[in-house]
Design a binder for these strands. Structure first.
Length: 577
DNA sequence: GCCGTTTTCGGCCCGACTGTTTTCAGTCG
C-alpha cells in the first residue's frame, strides 16, 4: 500500500503541531507547515518520486533535512523525530489546538498547570471551574471554551463551494444595500474558488463614519457576533459558517481585497517581493516609507511589484508568481469558451427531464451541442439502458436532430466499467454512438493496482472516449477509490482517450491538481455537468472554477472545441499525440 | 528548517481584536 501525499502532509503537520506546543523556533514550525502544504498539493505521488530517485530538495522550501524526512515517511518508515515528540507531548493534545482561542502557548500552559492533554480532560476541568486558576485564563476565555465544547467545536467541517454560495450571495446583496458602502467583494478561498471553504472573508470600502458594521451584525441570518471592531467584525451564521468583514477606505480596497483573498502563501511571496524593493505591502497598500504607491486596485499593486495581475484561482504560490513576472500566465478557460456539454441524463435513466428539454435548456445557455449519456443497465437502480433501449434512444435522437437548428444532440452513453474492466454494453451498440463515456459505479474497494488496471483495460476498448469522474470521490462524503491517477492519465494519452472534470459541486472530479497534471501530460479534459435535470446544466461554472485552478486554457478543454473539431478529437484511430 | 545580485549567518509578513492587563501576549487570518 503506497503512502499517499495526504498522509505525508498529515505527518508533517503533526510534527509542526507538536513542535509548536513545545515552544520550538516558530520558523522551524513554519518550515514543516509549508512542507506539509507543498506535499499535499503536489499532483505527483511523492512516494513515486522517491522511488524514481527524484531530488525532493529541489522543491521550494524543502532542504536536505526535510527531503530526507519526507523520503522516510514516503517509504512507510517511522519518523524518529515524531516518535520523540510524541514521547514528550501526548499526541491527543494537538486536538486542543482546533478550539477557538487555544493556540500553542495556552495549550502548553493548560498541560503544565492541570495536566490537560485531551478534549475530555479540558471539558472536565472547565466543568469543575478549574480553568481560571491557570495564569492568563480569565473568565472570558473560560466561558468561550465552555461554549465551544458544548457546541462540539473542533469538528467544524469545510463547506462545499456551492453551499457557501447559497448563503454568501444574499449576504453580499444585504451589504451592498448599506448606506455609505462603496464596494463589497467576497475574498478568501471563496474567491479563489476552492472546492470547499472554511469561512467567508468579505472586504468592503465605505465612506467614513457609516454604520456598515451595524448592517453586518444586524443581518437576519446571524446566530452570533463573535468580534466587533470598527474595521473588522466576525459573525457566525445560523448554519454555522463564520463570516469576517473588513472595512477599509476606498484607497485601500484593492490592497485589502488582495490581502484577504490570499492564499497566505501567495501573500507572503508578494510581501517578500515588496521587501526586496524596500517597500512594505500590507492590507492598506504598497508603501515606500509613509508614502502610498498603490492600494485602490489589485491591478495597480501587482504592477508596482513588477507583476501582471494574477487571477484569484491561481494565487496558491504554485508557480504563478514566476509566471506572472515573466508574463507567461495562462489564458484561463472561461464559461464563455464552453461550446458543449458531454455528460447528462434524461428520464430514460435517472434524470428528471426529456432529451428535448435538456437540448433546449443547453441551447439557451449558449451551448452548440450536448451528449445524452444515460446510465447503462448495470446500474439497475437508475433504470439503466440495455442495448435494445439504447437503440431506440439512438433513433429518437436522430429524429430530434432533424428538427433542431444550430444545435446537435450527440448519441452517447455513460457505460459502466465492470469490475474486470469490460464495458456493460456490447461493442455492436456502442459503435453506433457518437461518443462513449465510461464510469465506475461499483467495486470501489479494489486494491490500487487492480483498480488502475481495470481503468486501463476499459480504455483498451477503442470505443471508449471519456473516463467520467475518474476517482469517484464525493467531497466531504467519500474519498476516491484507490487508483494511480497518473498511470491512468498516461494510459489515456497513449490510447487517445480523454478524462472528465465532472462539474457536480459534490464531485469536482478530476480535482484542480489533477487537472494541472493532465495539462502537463498533454491530456485534454472534458468539463461536463453530469446534469440530471435542466437546472443542473448551470453547474458548468463550478467545473470551470476548478479547471482554472488547474491552469487549464481553452485548448486543454475538449468541449471548448467546435463540434467538427470535437468529432476529430474523438477519433481513437488518430492519437492526439 | 530554509535560504542567499546586499548574506553560508541571520534573517524569516503584518496587523486587528480580545482578554487580561496597567503596556502587552496570544490568537487568528
Amino acid at each position: 500500500m503506497p503512502v499517499v501525499n495526504a498522509d505525508i502532509a498529515s505527518e508533517l503537520d503533526k510534527v509542526a503541531d507538536l513542535l509548536e506546543i513545545e515552544g520550538a523556533n516558530p520558523f522551524r514550525v513554519r518550515a514543516y507547515r509549508q512542507a506539509a502544504r507543498l506535499v499535499g498539493s503536489l499532483p505527483r505521488s511523492v512516494a513515486e518520486m522517491v522511488a524514481a530517485g527524484d531530488d525532493l530538495d529541489a522543491l521550494p522550501g524543502i532542504g536536505q533535512d526535510l527531503a530526507g524526512k519526507i523520503a522516510l515517511i514516503a517509504t512507510g518508515k517511522h519518523l524518529p523525530l515524531l516518535d520523540e515528540l510524541e514521547r514528550e507531548v501526548p499526541p491527543g493534545i494537538t486536538a486542543l489546538l482546533a478550539l477557538p482561542g487555544l493556540g500553542p502557548k495556552r495549550v502548553h500552559a493548560l498541560h503544565e498547570a492541570l495536566g490537560i492533554d485531551s478534549i475530555d480532560k479540558l471539558a472536565a476541568a472547565a466543568k469543575s471551574g478549574q480553568l481560571h486558576t491557570v495564569a492568563g485564563f480569565g473568565p472570558g476565555i473560560e466561558a468561550r471554551l465552555v461554549r465551544a465544547l458544548a457546541e462540539g467545536a473542533g469538528q467544524a467541517q469545510r463547506v462545499k463551494l456551492a453551499t457557501a454560495e447559497q448563503v454568501a450571495e444574499p449576504l453580499l446583496r444585504h451589504l451592498r444595500g448599506a448606506d455609505g458602502v462603496l464596494q463589497v467583494e467576497i475574498a478568501g478561498s471563496y474567491r479563489r474558488r476552492r472546492e470547499t471553504v472554511g469561512d467567508l472573508d468579505i472586504v468592503a470600502s465605505a465612506e467614513p463614519g457609516k454604520p456598515v458594521m451595524d448592517r453586518f451584525a444586524g443581518y437576519e441570518d446571524v446566530a452570533e457576533v463573535t468580534e466587533r471592531g470598527t474595521t473588522r467584525s466576525t459573525i457566525v451564521l445560523r448554519n454555522g459558517l463564520q463570516v469576517d468583514l473588513r472595512v477599509v477606505a476606498p484607497e485601500s480596497f484593492g490592497a485589502a481585497l488582495l490581502y484577504f483573498t490570499g492564499s497566505k502563501a501567495h501573500n507572503i511571496a508578494l510581501r517578500q517581493i515588496a521587501m526586496a524593493r524596500n517597500l512594505k505591502l500590507n492590507e492598506y497598500g504598497l508603501f515606500s516609507g509613509a508614502k502610498r504607491l498603490a492600494g485602490a486596485t489589485e491591478q495597480d499593486l501587482y504592477e508596482r511589484l513588477g507583476l501582471t495581475m494574477v487571477p484569484p484561482e491561481l494565487r496558491e504560490d504554485q508557480g504563478e508568481i514566476d509566471a506572472s513576472r515573466q508574463k507567461r500566465l495562462p489564458h484561463l478557460v472561461t464559461l464563455d469558451d464552453i461550446r458543449g456539454d458531454l455528460h447528462m441524463h434524461t428520464t430514460a435513466s435517472d434524470g428528471h427531464d426529456s432529451i428535448l428539454a435538456m437540448a433546449r435548456a443547453a441551447q439557451a445557455l449558449g451551448r452548440a451541442y450536448i451528449a445524452i449519456t444515460d446510465h447503462s443497465k448495470h446500474v439497475a437502480v437508475t433504470h439503466g439502458l440495455d442495448a435494445a433501449r439504447l437503440a431506440r434512444q439512438i433513433d429518437e435522437i436522430d429524429r430530434l436532430n432533424a428538427g433542431l437548428k444550430d444545435f446537435t444532440v450527440l448519441k452517447a452513453i455513460e457505460v459502466d466499467i465492470l469490475e474486470d474492466g469490460s464495458l456493460d454494453l456490447p461493442d455492436r451498440i456502442l459503435r453506433r454512438l457518437d461518443l462513449v463515456v465510461g464510469a465506475v459505479h461499483s467495486a470501489f474497494d479494489l486494491p490500487r493496482g487492480q483498480q488502475t488496471a481495470r481503468l486501463l483495460k476499459a480504455m483498451d476498448n477503442p470505443l471508449l472516449n471519456i473516463l467520467a469522474h475518474p476517482t469517484g470521490r464525493l467531497i466531504n462524503a467519500r474519498p476516491g477509490y484507490a487508483v494511480d491517477i497518473e498511470a491512468v492519465m498516461r494510459g489515456a494519452r497513449e490510447r487517445g482517450c480523454h478524462l472528465e472534470l465532472n462539474a457536480q459541486p459534490d464531485r469536482l472530479d478530476l480535482n484542480d491538481t489533477s487537472c494541472r497534471l493532465a495539462k502537463e501530460l498533454g491530456l485534454k479534459v472534458a468539463i461536463s455537468t453530469d446534469a440530471h435535470a435542466t437546472t443542473q446544466l448551470g453547474h458548468m461554472r463550478f467545473g470551470i472554477d476548478q479547471a482554472r485552478r488547474g491552469w487549464l486554457e481553452p485548448g486543454d478543454v475538449l468541449n471548448a472545441a467546435s463540434l467538427a473539431d470535437l468529432r476529430r478529437m474523438l477519433r481513437r484511430d488518430v492519437p492526439a499525440v
